[in-house]
Design a protein around this nucleic acid. Structure first.
Lengths: 341, 341
DNA sequence: CTGAAAGCGCTTACAG
DNA sequence: CTGAAAGCGCTTACAG
């Protein structure tokens, strides 16, 4: 068509320059054994001189593997997922994989397609953070593409899962509030059923502290946004006579909204009400007051997820029932630090 | 046919089932002309029945194009870039491209490699948001991979650029502050040299309002983070006798920090000091007070960037000196809305 | 409008 | 340790 642009050097060019066969060059590139020092050096020099870099489309075609994994998240513009994606990309690149980010918008149909590997580009494996679908849906899937689950809930016994100990994290949050002097603790967040582990951690934390669980202080919301958090907190304050003295918000963003509502209601954070969030997004230190929160080790989550996926892809074995738990830590900031009085 | 596990159907399987040649199937898939209605239907049915989806590695190899474009950003976990990436992915997918996100961490060497197309995977084009490198560096590049620049500055006459009218946006921010009653307006942000367009907009805005430019109210910072914004504002308030009555922060995050500093200094937002940010990140409505800001039309930026890149890749022509400007708008929230007194 | 065939640039049994 | 060759699944001149 057009006068071909600077044709990139091919494997055969390297082989020719080095005076060896393509097979040998391939061996060197892929780190296989049985290449003499001398030959290896000649090949390496030839690669250097030609500026050769393998054509990965050709490699994929020959190997029957694409070299891509898909990271399936609701939306990349939600900071939790953005941070996660950043880490997953880095971890995957270290293992020679490319990451295709696929946004489902939380749509169940899009999530189902993703589970079936219905991407335009073939992928060798999936790391998924599902919003609408659960273990039952995963059990029904036809595709056998290796899969690793991220997020609060696992996706059944057949799917390796990386998360944190949400019960423990919930308990830690409550304990910190209690130690900060709170006795009437509210919780705000979406999906607060009995199966929600953070909520369960919340219950257990109250139990440990021998505090009553007051149902009117449990405020479920539709989605974990600041707007929802603000609305729920405003409603809570309107409906109840004695306001809570502590709030556990299921994400930092929800906590931001809660703090707005408290302020509008004339309640001071932390002196009247302590607030703790979850996630440790980059803005939490800059909020006013800065937000105490639980910080999951996202780096660890991402790299473990990639490792588990690599095991499946390489090993071929569906590693069953693996449940990895990454660390988390409490980051204490102004929103729970009462001035000694 | 074979009882072996679901080997994915190939083009040839579709052709066989439809009773046509591979060429014809290819024609149908790629939307070429000269296929009879009847034949097309048969092929489509066969594709449907087999569940055929093309192997893109094979296609890439045959076409000599990878089907990938790279989005080069400093870090994906910075919300501005996360939102942008989300939009770029969507826009590119609509055109049949995949997006490889490449994080440079702002490192000049990483940016240089990216400009040269030094990715493990070959890419057909680049959309770059550079941090360390500028037009001079781009002029020196050897690679001729199609390139589109994003961000405040363009990258020289040879590189199409998509941004917003930063001067106009800066002026709009100042005008809004002035209309809110501000007369002593400070600006906080990184890179505030004479070449910074938002800073220039700031100057012009002051000029328009016939306000003096007070050098001590210009506060450059190292990076646009909340921490830096807070520190710069604290220093400003310490060094100056009469505090400003308005602050233009170069990003929302910087504005968050500035508002913290103002509060700690006993100044109320907006009654004592109005604050306006830039970016409209998702947290700005949830800050307390909620943040007035300039919202660039990121959707438009992303889709125009992808369009311009597609033009270059398909057209082959290096479309020179294209400067696209996306819309932006003022989003007024609490941080500049003084109660009528 | 459609077919037969070459070719894209790798990997990988299979020989040696 | 290394070579010659088949094959991965497409696209695309080239014929017809």
């Amino acid at each position: 068509m057009s006068p071909t642009p600077p044709d990139r050097p091919r494997l055969v060019d390297v082989a020719e320059l080095a005076g060896v066969s393509m097979k040998t060059v391939s061996n060197v590139i892929n780190g296989y054994a049985y290449v003499s020092e001398d030959t290896r050096d000649r090949v390496l020099t030839a690669i250097e001189r030609t500026g050769y870099r393998p054509n990965l489309s050709a490699r994929s075609l020959a190997r029957g593997r694409s070299g891509f994994i898909a990271l399936v998240v609701p939306r990349l513009d939600m900071p939790y997922f953005a941070v996660l994606a950043a880490r997953v990309i880095s971890a995957a690149e270290a293992l020679g994989w490319f990451v295709l980010i696929h946004q489902t918008d939380g749509d169940s149909r899009a999530e189902r397609d993703a589970l079936e590997g219905q991407f335009p580009q073939r992928v060798d494996g999936l790391i998924v953070s599902l919003h609408s679908l659960g273990a039952e849906d995963v059990a029904r899937r036809r595709s056998s593409i290796p899969l690793v689950a991220l997020g609060d809930r696992g996706l059944g016994p057949d799917v390796p899962h990386v998360g944190i100990d949400n019960i423990g994290a919930g308990k830690l949050a409550v304990r910190h509030l209690v130690e900060s002097g709170c006795r009437r603790i509210a919780m705000i967040g979406s999906g607060m059923t009995h199966r929600n582990l953070r909520a369960q951690g919340f219950f257990e934390g109250l139990l440990d502290a021998e505090l009553a669980l007051l149902p009117e202080l449990m405020r479920p919301i539709a989605g974990n946004s600041g707007e929802e958090g603000e609305r729920a907190t405003t409603e809570l304050l309107a409906e109840i006579d004695e306001p809570p003295d502590g709030i556990f918000a299921v994400t930092d963003w929800v906590a931001f909204g809660a703090m707005r509502a408290l302020d509008h209601h004339g309640l001071r954070v932390p002196d009247d009400v302590c607030v703790i969030g979850f996630d440790d997004i980059p803005y939490s230190p800059s909020f006013n007051p800065s937000l105490t929160t639980i910080a999951p080790d996202r780096e660890a989550i991402a790299s473990r997820a990639v490792d588990l996926l690599a095991d499946q892809i390489d090993g071929g074995s569906r590693s069953k029932a693996i449940r990895e738990q990454a660390e988390f830590r409490l980051v204490v900031r102004e929103s729970t630090q009462r001035t000694a009085r």
